[in-house]
Design a protein around this nucleic acid. Structure first.
Lengths: 259, 259
DNA sequence: TGCAATGGATAGTGGCACTCACCACTATCC
DNA sequence: GGATAGTGGTGAGTGCCACTATCCATTGCA
C-alpha cells in the first residue's frame, strides 16, 4: 500500500514510511521498467517484495539500493545477468565467514574463459610467476586473477606486441597504488553488511573509473607531448593541436563534439 | 595454388613464399574456424584474400596478424564485432592524417551509451571538470573519454558510494603514470603503419592488463594487511589466511583451484 | 462501479556471434 | 580419367541473452 503518486495522489511521493513502495514507484525512482524489475526478481538478482496481499507487495530502500547496484554492474561494469547473480549470491550469503565470501566474489569477478593450451599462454604464465615473485606478492599464481593477467599478456604476445611486457612493472606499480587506496577506502566504510558489497562495487566500478581515467590521461599526455595549445586556450578546447601521439588518443573528440 | 598441407603434402607447411596460404591453413594457424574467418571477411573485419582463381584466394602474414588482432579485441578486450569494425576502419584509413585517425579510433574505443539526463550525471560531470582543471589536463571535458569517466562516477554516486570520489586523485595519479609509459612505449615502436594499430592494442589490451593487475594487487594487499602467511608459505599457496579485506579480493581462489 | 495498478507466468523479440548447408568450382592424387 | 578434399561465396539457421509483451485474476481506491 501507499506511496504511488498515481494510485494515491494525496500521499507525498517522497516518503514511504515503514512499508515501502510498490513496484511502479520503484520503477519510477530508478528508471528501470516494471517488466524488467519483475525479470530481475525472477532471475534472483533482486529479492521479491514483501507481500501484504496476494497481489500487493512493497519494496523498501534496500530493494532500491540493490536495483541500482544491479544496473551499475550491468551498464557500467558490463557484467552479465548470470555473473551478477553469482556475485550477489555470494554477497547475500550471511552464513559463511566474511573472508570466504569476499574471496568467492572476487573469483567470480575475475573468472574468464580458458581456451585451448597455447605456447603464448604458457610463457605468459611464467611471466606472471616471475612478476609475483619479483614483487613479493602474496598471491596464488593459479588464481583466476593471475590467469586473467596471463591471458592478457598472451594476447599481447600473439598480436605481435610481446615487448609490452617491459611495461609490466610500471603497470604493477600503478595497480599496487590503487589497490592500497581501495583497501583503505573500504576499511573505513561499511562495517560488515555492506562490506562485501563495497568490495564488489569498488572492484567493478573502480575498473571502469581507472580505465576511463587512463584514456583521459592518454589524451592529455598526447596533447602535452605533441603540443596542442593552439590559438584559443590549452584546456577545454577541442584540443586541436598535433597529436600524432602513438599509444594515446589524438584528441578528446571530434571538433563538433565540443560544440 | 600452393601451401595446403593436405592439398600439397610435398610442400613444407611452414613457409608460404610470396603468395601466402589458403583459408584452411590460416584457420589452422590461428585457431579460428574457417566459417568464422569467412564471417569476419563478410563483416569487414578482415580483408578478403587475393584471388588467383575464381575460388582460390591466398592470405598472407598481414591477414594472420589482423585476424589475431580481431580475436584479441574480441576475447580479451571484450569489444563487439561492430565496434571492432569501426575501430579497424579508422586504422585502415590511410588517407586521413594520422593524428585525426588516432583521435577517431580513441573516441570509438571510449564511446558508451548515454542514457537519460540525471542529477548524478550532472554532478559527476562537474567533478570531472574540477579534476581536469585541478590537474591541468589538456583535454576536452566533452570528449567521450571524459563522459565515460563521468558515467562511472555517476554510477558510484547512484549506488551509494559517492565518497569514492575522494580517491579520484589517487586514481588519476596512477592513470597518468601508465599513460606516460604507454606513450613512451608507442613512441619507440611502430613508425607510421602500425602506429594506429599500436594505439588500439595498447589501449584495449592495456586496459585488460591493468585491471587484471589491480585485482591481483587487491589479493596481495588483503593478504598483506590481514596476514596470510599460514602454515605453508606466504606465496604460491592457496592464500589461506584471513583476508576479510574490504575492497579487494579475499584470496586468490578457492583452495581446490590450486590443486 | 469502474479502472488503474499489481503479482505472477508464459511466450515472444531483437541483437549478436557465430555456424550450417549448399553451390559450383578447383587442385591434387591415383 | 576419376575420386576426393578443399575453396570462395551466400543465405539461412542456431543458441544465447537481456529484456518485453501479453495475459490473467485480484486488488486498492475514487
Amino acid at each position: 500500500m501507499m506511496g504511488g503518486e498515481l494510485a494515491r495522489p494525496d500521499v507525498d511521493e517522497g516518503e514511504e514510511g515503514e512499508h515501502g513502495v510498490r513496484i511502479g514507484e520503484l520503477s519510477r525512482r530508478t528508471g528501470v521498467s516494471v517488466p524488467t524489475i519483475k525479470y530481475y526478481v525472477r532471475e534472483g538478482l533482486l529479492p521479491a517484495g514483501r507481500l501484504s496481499s496476494p497481489n500487493q507487495a512493497s519494496y523498501d530502500a534496500s530493494h532500491e539500493r540493490r536495483l541500482r547496484l544491479v544496473r551499475a554492474l550491468l551498464d557500467v561494469g558490463g557484467l552479465s545477468v548470470a555473473a551478477i547473480r553469482e556475485v550477489l549470491d555470494a554477497v547475500d550469503d550471511t552464513e559463511r565467514p566474511v573472508h570466504k565470501v569476499l574471496g568467492e566474489a572476487a573469483d567470480r569477478l575475475a573468472a574468464r574463459h580458458v581456451g585451448e593450451p597455447d605456447a603464448a599462454l604458457d610463457a605468459a604464465r611464467a611471466a606472471v610467476a616471475d612478476l609475483v615473485e619479483r614483487r613479493g606478492w602474496r598471491v596464488n599464481v593459479k588464481s583466476p586473477q593471475a590467469e586473467a593477467l596471463a591471458g592478457a599478456l598472451a594476447a599481447l604476445e600473439r598480436v605481435g606486441h610481446g615487448t609490452f611486457v617491459e611495461l609490466l612493472d610500471d603497470y604493477a606499480d600503478a595497480a599496487e597504488k590503487v589497490a592500497g587506496v581501495d583497501l583503505a577506502y573500504a576499511a573505513r566504510s561499511a562495517r560488515r553488511e555492506g562490506l562485501v558489497e563495497s568490495a564488489v562495487v569498488g572492484t567493478v566500478l573502480g575498473d571502469a573509473l581507472l580505465t576511463a581515467l587512463r584514456r583521459l590521461a592518454h589524451v592529455d599526455a598526447s596533447a602535452r607531448a605533441y603540443g596542442d595549445g593552439g590559438p584559443e586556450g590549452p584546456v577545454a578546447r577541442e584540443a586541436s593541436g598535433e597529436p600524432g601521439a602513438p599509444d594515446g588518443e589524438g584528441r578528446g573528440s571530434g571538433p563538433d563534439a565540443a560544440a
